[in-house]
């Protein structure tokens, strides 16, 4: 039961992170290593607003997402966009960006572990296991976000343009889709998802300047398992890894630190056995 709940929550959180990461990779071939660092920024913003300034948690979350989107767009405009056609440079630049954000948080908030109180207190018991209301809330909110994202991608003109560009940006260009504007919009959506993940998870997690690293590794494993650039793949793989993680923690209670290694092992196995992932799209560069 416990595994089910943690698995669902971790899986949903990973799905949000991995889909955001996949989106911007699909549309603009940007591998954004700083993706989970934006998630950390959202967590800190919420901590600062709610614990220090006494802003209500709901508003703190909205402001945090806005802050992260603004930062993401700034980073895109001045750091990533100018070198966007240079994959190695983007990789290095986003690693540097993540480190900068980590150091900035260290400077401002020190390395102390911080916590934010739950939005709703209390728990109920199912099958002998305590389920906190906050866990349910987080799960429901994540599902709503995923549904909204699905609607955006599948049912709107913008979503159509994003998917077209992800599939073949040259042909998308021929259809009148402004590829560089779409890349920017997608970046905004992508970091908004990272920010939202941070926002919904913060009452359940510990806030620290290094909190971006573990999710980054597991998110990468998700993306590799699901197939780079495949949104459906990210979704399925997120739950697979979410449950794996919960299972590892359950089977080896003292081995929570193994989570990252298990994710890495899965990633390496997938790369060896089926490099295109579960729902892999093979990327032939079209000309």
């Amino acid at each position: 039961m416990n595994i089910l709940i943690t698995g669902l929550i971790t899986g949903s959180m990973l799905a949000l992170l991995a889909i955001g990461f996949s989106l911007i990779f699909g549309v603009a071939r940007i591998v954004n290593i700083a993706h989970t660092a934006f998630y950390m920024i959202a967590a800190y913003t919420i901590y600062f607003l709610s614990a220090k300034l006494g802003v209500s948690p709901f508003w703190a979350m909205l402001i945090a997402v806005a802050v992260v989107v603004a930062l993401g767009l700034l980073a895109y405009r001045f750091l990533i966009d100018p070198i966007r056609e240079h994959e190695a440079a983007v990789l290095i630049a986003t690693i540097a960006l993540a480190m900068i954000m980590q150091e900035a948080m260290l400077l401002i908030f020190t390395g102390d572990y911080l916590t934010v109180s739950a939005l709703i207190q209390g728990f109920f018991v199912v099958g002998g296991v305590k389920v906190f209301h906050q866990q349910v809330l987080t799960f429901v909110v994540v599902l709503i976000i995923l549904a909204a994202l699905w609607l955006l991608l599948m049912k709107t003109n913008l979503g159509l343009a994003i998917r077209s560009t992800a599939e073949d940006r040259e042909v998308a260009n021929l259809m009148g889709m402004n590829e560089s504007r779409l890349a920017m919009i997608t970046m905004a959506i992508s970091v908004a998802l990272a920010g939202l993940t941070g926002a919904v998870i913060v009452p359940l997690a510990v806030v620290s300047p290094f909190m971006w690293m573990e999710p980054l590794i597991i998110m990468m494993a998700v993306v590799v398992l699901g197939g780079l650039g495949s949104i459906k793949g990210s979704f399925v793989a997120a739950y697979i890894l979410g449950f794996t993680e919960a299972l590892v923690v359950f089977l080896i209670p003292k081995g929570a630190f193994l989570k990252g290694s298990v994710a890495l092992s899965i990633m390496i196995l997938v790369l060896l056995l089926r490099p295109e992932g579960l729902f892999g799209v093979s990327f032939e560069e079209e000309r």
């Binding site: 003109n157 998917r163 077209s164 599939e167 073949d168 259809m175 009148g176 889709m177």
Partner: peptide, 21 residues
């Protein structure tokens, strides 16, 4: 374009709607 290049993962209708973007 040469080699047709439909958006392969999208439906026929979605491809056509993309043309009318």
């Amino acid at each position: 374009p040469e080699r047709r290049r439909p958006f392969r993962e999208m439906t026929v209708l979605e491809n056509l709607l993309a043309g009318a973007y």
